[in-house]
């Protein structure tokens, strides 16, 4: 991943977010760097509680009320999102940047027809209503909904789960955004539909030329869809690189363990699956040194006291770990 902002649609630099809680300040994100190069698909993996959702909310500037003002910069098409007013943000959301959520049924309004929702969402465009309707039909066709003209008048519950998710994708891509954020869009679907969605995202991405930030904890989907992978743990990015670097030569012990734990990569039948021992550290009282030290199998003396540096292992493959550090 290039570190020059000019080629990146989105470039998150040194982002830190804290939440005020009853027990004190919870640091949900610490010095996070993420780049999304133009026309590429970047996957974000990590366990629940690692900060994936906070990262998305920071990018779309919809953080919960108890979050402090984020530190760092989020550069999107040459503008720092963190310095924009909410009015300016509203001009970007759903226009240059849009999002597909995990559960399509809660994305779509159950009491408004699909057509009305797809037309309403084009409120920024100055087209006539007939043109907007035609645009909606074209989008539904491109996501493979049969008989789109008639189905526009139907309601969300009349579609299957896979179709609902494809409609959400069609709505997100209607304005041809520069960046699509997909937050675990396939978790609610089974394997055959999952593959349909992956193929759909890939082909639409190529047609429209947008970039995708794809959040998932399904390693198989990430491997198949993404060009680059960002691995997060306890509020930090611990490793990032091309999909092949991450899956074939993981540099961080956490990435290596995560890959080893996936039952899909264990070909022989076993009654005892590998796990990662220990628990995610409490983000209110963070340990000294490396956040992963209590679960790590390569722990060394310096892990206890020194926070590992963010360093480049090889071209465009970054890790923060003391192991094999120069």
């Amino acid at each position: 991943m290039t570190q020059e902002t000019s080629e990146n649609v989105l470039s998150v630099r040194n982002l830190s977010v804290d939440y005020a809680t009853e027990r004190g300040s919870l640091s949900a994100l610490r010095h996070v760097n993420v780049d999304v190069p133009k026309g590429s698909i970047v996957g974000v993996v990590g366990e629940s509680g690692c900060g994936k959702s906070t990262l998305i909310s920071s990018i779309i500037r919809l953080l919960a009320d108890n979050a402090n003002t984020p530190n760092g910069t989020i550069d999107f098409e040459g503008r720092d999102l963190l310095s924009l007013s909410q009015d300016e943000m509203r001009g970007i959301r759903g226009n240059r940047m849009s999002i597909v959520f995990q559960d399509p049924m809660s994305t779509l309004n159950p009491v408004i027809s699909i057509g009305r929702q797809m037309i309403d969402i084009q409120h920024r465009s100055h087209k006539t209503k007939a043109e907007k309707r035609q645009r909606s039909i074209d989008m539904l066709t491109s996501v493979g909904i049969p008989d789109p003209t008639n189905r526009l008048d139907q309601f969300p519950h009349e579609f299957s789960g896979g179709m609902q998710q494809r409609i959400s994708i069609a709505m997100a891509l209607q304005a041809e955004p520069a960046l699509l954020i997909a937050d675990e869009p396939t978790t609610a679907l089974d394997a055959t539909l999952e593959v349909q969605i992956i193929h759909l995202l890939k082909s639409l991405q190529a047609d429209i030329g947008c970039s995708i930030l794809f959040i998932s904890h399904h390693l198989g989907v990430i491997a198949e869809l993404c060009d680059y992978v960002v691995v997060m743990y306890a509020g930090e990015v611990v490793e990032q690189g091309t999909v092949r670097d991450i899956f074939h030569h993981p540099a961080h012990p956490y990435t290596a363990m995560l890959l080893k734990c996936d039952p899909a990569s264990i070909s022989t039948k076993t009654r005892s699956l590998p796990t990662i021992k220990g628990e995610i550290p409490d983000l209110v009282t963070l340990p000294q040194g490396c956040v992963f030290k209590n679960r790590c199998d390569r722990v060394m003396q310096q892990c206890d006291s020194k926070v590992p540096m963010w360093r480049e292992v090889k071209n465009a493959h970054f890790v923060s770990c003391h192991w094999n550090a120069p």
């Binding site: 394997a191 399904h218 198989g220 491997a223 198949e224 999909v243 899956f247 074939h248 899909a264």
Partner: peptide, 9 residues
């Protein structure tokens, strides 16, 4: 259909 955790699968 089941995606495999290997980009070169």
């Amino acid at each position: 259909a089941n995606p495999k955790p290997n980009p070169d699968a």
